[in-house]
């Protein structure tokens, strides 16, 4: 019964909340769809937290997506043990990278006065669920290793069965690894809370920045002229910055 709730009901609840909630938020609270960046308040620690965290998460997200969409390609790649090792070690490194980044981000949020002011309760939920997700993922990768192969073999069929509205939960329910179950459940929980948190920012990531032409900003006045001008309307260069 618990298994049905966790592996057949929770996924649909989470996906429905994600879809409806995200559309509602975008339509009605459009300006809140943002990462609510605190980079203006603190940038130095943010860099070493945010960069390893986002690169780790980015690569792992697409890794999971590829194993879900093209399982046979992943299995073909893993056919040679050396390639399997390369894939697994690289994925594990990005997992560690995400963990390191997240720990630094949590420490920053807990210790920096400026960042504390803009921290909401939902941010704590976000950190808790991300920490669960990344730690359980690393435990799975280490203690139930070669996940890239068995994900394609039996988790992809499970996830596909969810998406075609015919959930087959026997395989996932029979797994003895607690960290794997936690990983799957917290993944669905994460999807479910996207609309209520700063997670929404991944939906509005400005991907077109990657291919749009660059823009050069040119100030149309002479700095020297302004420095020496006595005219108030032309302004004076601030002396305190």
């Amino acid at each position: 019964m618990t298994n049905i709730l966790l592996f057949a009901v929770l996924p649909y609840a989470a996906l429905a909340i994600f879809l409806v909630g995200s559309i509602y938020r975008y339509k009605n609270r459009g300006f809140s769809v943002s990462s609510i960046s605190s980079q203006f308040l603190e940038g130095k620690k943010l860099f070493w937290g945010s960069q390893p965290f986002h690169w780790g998460l980015f690569i792992l997200f697409f890794g999971h997506l590829i194993a879900f969409l093209f399982p046979s390609a992943v299995l073909a790649w893993n056919g040679q043990p050396v390639r399997l090792l390369i894939l697994e070690i690289a994925a594990f490194a990005f997992g560690l990278s995400a963990l390191l980044g997240l720990v630094l981000l949590i420490l920053r949020r807990l210790t920096n006065r400026r960042v504390q002011i803009v921290t909401s309760k939902m941010d704590i939920v976000v950190y808790a669920i991300l920490l669960t997700q990344i730690v359980s993922g690393l435990l799975v990768a280490y203690h139930s290793r070669w996940g890239s192969s068995w994900f394609s073999a039996f988790l992809t069929p499970y996830l596909r069965s969810v998406f075609v509205f015919d959930p087959q939960i026997d395989a996932i329910a029979s797994v003895t690894s607690l960290s794997l179950k936690v990983h799957v459940i917290s993944a669905f929980a994460l999807i479910g809370i996207i609309p209520f948190t700063r997670f929404v920012h991944f939906l509005v990531y400005p991907v077109d920045y990657l291919w749009r032409s660059y823009q050069q900003v040119i100030w149309n006045w002479s700095r020297k002229h302004i420095r020496t001008s006595r005219s108030h309307s032309e302004g004076h260069k601030s002396k305190n910055n």
Partner: peptide, 30 residues
């Protein structure tokens, strides 16, 4: 193998990040 390889890989990722963003603005604007 996985643990050592992973830690080595993490070092590589950090070094890469350090060099790719070497010219970043290191202090906040204000």
């Amino acid at each position: 193998l996985l643990l050592y390889g992973g830690i080595g890989g993490l070092g590589g990722i950090l070094i890469l990040i350090y060099f790719l963003w070497f010219a970043r603005k290191k202090e906040t604007v204000k």
